[in-house]
Amino acid sequence: VTLFVASYDYEARTEDDLSFHKGEKFQILNSSEGDWWEARSLTTGETGYIPSNYVAPV
């Protein structure tokens, strides 16, 4: 399981994006799509795309 933590807050801009807060942890589901990764929030359980430059490895 690949875990990352949010370095910043992010507000979703499309329905496919995932909003999150600094400190929130994610399981990365797919990182092969470039700068936007499909992730599941371990806080909310929601799945969506997050900007990879807003998160760091745990």
Rank of each mutant, 00 (worst) to 15 (best):
T43K: 11
D16Q: 14
D9G: 06
N53R: 13
G45K: 04
Q27M: 13
I50P: 00
Y49K: 13
N53S: 14
F26D: 00
S32G: 10
E33K: 14
A12W: 03
S52Y: 08
D16E: 12
A39R: 00
I28S: 01
E24R: 00
H21S: 12
I50L: 05
T14L: 09
A12Y: 03
V1T: 12
I50H: 00
T47F: 06
L42G: 03
W36Y: 11
A39P: 00
T43H: 10
T2Y: 12
W36N: 05
D16G: 15
T47P: 01
Y10D: 00
G23Q: 02
P57C: 07
T47G: 03
G48P: 00
E15N: 12
E33Y: 11
A6V: 02
T14Y: 15
R40T: 14
S31K: 13
W36M: 11
A6R: 00
G23I: 01
Y8D: 09
D16H: 15
T14D: 11
E33F: 12
E38N: 07
E11I: 13
H21T: 13
T2G: 12
N30M: 07
W37L: 08
S41E: 03
Q27G: 02
T43R: 11
F4N: 01
A39N: 01
E24S: 04
T47R: 09
D35N: 09
Y49H: 07
G34F: 09
T14M: 11
S41N: 13
N53T: 11
A56K: 14
P57T: 05
A39G: 06
I28K: 03
S7I: 15
H21W: 08
L42E: 09
L42T: 07
Q27N: 06
S19P: 05
I50V: 08
T43W: 10
P51F: 06
E38H: 13
E15T: 12
D17G: 15
I50N: 01
A6L: 01
S31H: 10
A56F: 13
Y8V: 09
S7C: 15
L18K: 01
N30W: 08
E15C: 14
N30G: 09
W37M: 05
P51C: 09
Y10C: 05
R13C: 13
V5I: 12
I28M: 03
T44V: 01
T44S: 10
F4I: 03
A12S: 10
I28W: 01
G34R: 12
F20G: 01
S52D: 02
Y54P: 03
N53H: 12
I28T: 01
T2A: 10
F20C: 01
R13W: 07
E24G: 01
A6Y: 02
A6S: 05
S32M: 12
E15Q: 12
V5S: 05
H21D: 06
N30Q: 08
S41G: 03
P57Q: 08
K22D: 02
N53W: 15
E15H: 11
A39T: 02
I28C: 05
S31D: 13
S31V: 11
G23Y: 05
E24K: 01
L42V: 08
K22E: 07
F4L: 04
G48N: 01
T43I: 08
T47Y: 08
A6G: 03
F20L: 05
W36I: 07
G34H: 12
L3C: 11
S41V: 05
Y54L: 14
Q27D: 07
Y54H: 09
Y54A: 14
G34T: 12
Q27V: 15
T2F: 11
I50F: 01
E38A: 06
S32T: 12
T14Q: 11
S7Q: 15
Y10K: 02
W36L: 07
S7Y: 14
V55C: 05
S7M: 15
A6C: 06
G48A: 02
P57D: 05
W36A: 05
P51H: 08
S31W: 13
E15Y: 09
N53V: 09
G34I: 11
A6E: 01
S41M: 05
T43Y: 09
G45F: 07
S19M: 03
L18D: 00
N53C: 15
S19D: 04
P57H: 06
Q27W: 14
L3R: 04
Y8K: 12
L18P: 00
V1F: 13
F4V: 10
Y49E: 02
Y54N: 04
I28L: 06
E24I: 02
A12K: 08
T14A: 12
E33V: 10
A6N: 00
F26G: 00
V55H: 03
L3E: 08
R13H: 10
D17N: 11
E11M: 11
T2Q: 13
R40P: 03
Y10W: 09
Y10L: 01
G48T: 02
P57Y: 06
D9V: 03
E46G: 07
E46D: 08
W37H: 03
T14H: 14
Y10F: 09
E38P: 04
T47K: 10
E38F: 15
R40L: 14
F26A: 01
Y49W: 15
N30I: 07
T47M: 09
G45H: 06
H21I: 12
D16T: 14
L18S: 00
L29K: 04
H21K: 15
G48F: 05
E46S: 09
G23H: 04
E33C: 14
N53Y: 11
D35P: 10
T47W: 08
F4Y: 15
W37I: 05
T2I: 13
G34N: 12
A12N: 05
S31F: 15
E38D: 04
T44M: 01
H21R: 14
Y54W: 07
H21A: 11
Y8N: 08
S32E: 10
E38R: 08
H21E: 09
R40H: 08
Y10S: 01
E11D: 09
P57W: 06
Y8M: 13
T47V: 14
P51N: 09
V5Q: 09
T14I: 06
D9L: 03
G34V: 11
L29F: 06
T2K: 11
Q27K: 07
A6T: 03
L18T: 02
D35Q: 09
E46P: 00
E11H: 11
R40M: 14
E11S: 10
V55Q: 03
T44K: 03
A12H: 05
